[in-house]
């Protein structure tokens, strides 16, 4: 039951994007289409999982003073692997994610989980934590992408939903749309929280 809690906390209660406001840059930048968003989520989840495993295995060998550079080195190795694999097998996705693949290195979710969780807990818990956080991140980025792609081009996952007569709201896939979407989603979450808080009293 406790293990299940480690897994689910990242998805809703401690969602890295909406609740902790981490990893905002890739969330906003690659959420123009659902396809890119899923690719980004998968890449980040893989890096998060592998770095959490390695860091929790190595936690007794890494000197405390230079732990942050060590974590960054571990993360950067996995990011390089993801970069090369994506370049070889999904070149079109690699091209549309572009600079944001190497930038997974500085995604604060990954370094944050390494510092806050994997360096203090055993491998099993770290794996669950990484999967939960990875799903939470992917979920957040996909939700934003669904809204933006739907409004901006009338499609979801490249499948037309709206009739051809719909005039796409181009601003949704331009930068301002990303900011407005995440602002309203965060506001919605706050609204639900406030309601719950009131009824709980």
């Amino acid at each position: 039951m406790k293990a299940f809690g480690e897994l689910t906390k990242g998805i809703i209660k401690e969602n890295p994007v909406f609740v902790m406001a981490l990893g905002l840059c890739p969330t906003l930048a690659v959420s123009t289409s659902v396809n890119d968003a899923i690719g980004m989520g998968a890449a980040a989840t893989f890096v998060l999982l592998s770095s959490n495993i390695f860091i929790s295995l190595l936690k007794n060998f890494i000197p405390n003073k230079i732990r942050i550079p060590c974590y960054i080195l571990v993360i950067a190795s996995f990011v390089t692997m993801v970069d090369m694999v994506m370049h070889a097998y999904v070149p079109s996705l690699h091209k549309s994610l572009g600079i944001f693949i190497p930038l997974i290195v500085v995604n604060c979710i990954i370094l944050g989980r390494a510092e806050a969780f994997a360096s203090k807990n055993n491998v099993g818990k770290s794996i669950l934590d990484a999967i939960g956080m990875g799903i939470g991140f992917t979920l957040a980025i996909v939700i934003i992408a669904v809204i933006r792609e739907f409004l901006g081009s009338g499609t979801i996952y490249n499948i037309s939903i709206l009739p051809a007569s719909y005039k796409p709201m181009i601003v949704a896939i331009l930068p301002p749309g990303a900011f407005f979407t995440i602002a309203l989603l965060m506001g919605l979450i706050n609204l639900i929280k406030n309601k719950k808080h009131k009824s709980g009293e």
């Binding site: 406001a21 301002p176 749309g177 990303a178 900011f179 407005f180 995440i182 602002a183 309203l184 965060m186 506001g187 706050n190």
Partner: peptide, 9 residues
């Protein structure tokens, strides 16, 4: 945070 994002938008 939300209002900050709206301003950014």
């Amino acid at each position: 945070m939300p209002i900050a994002f709206i301003v950014a938008g």
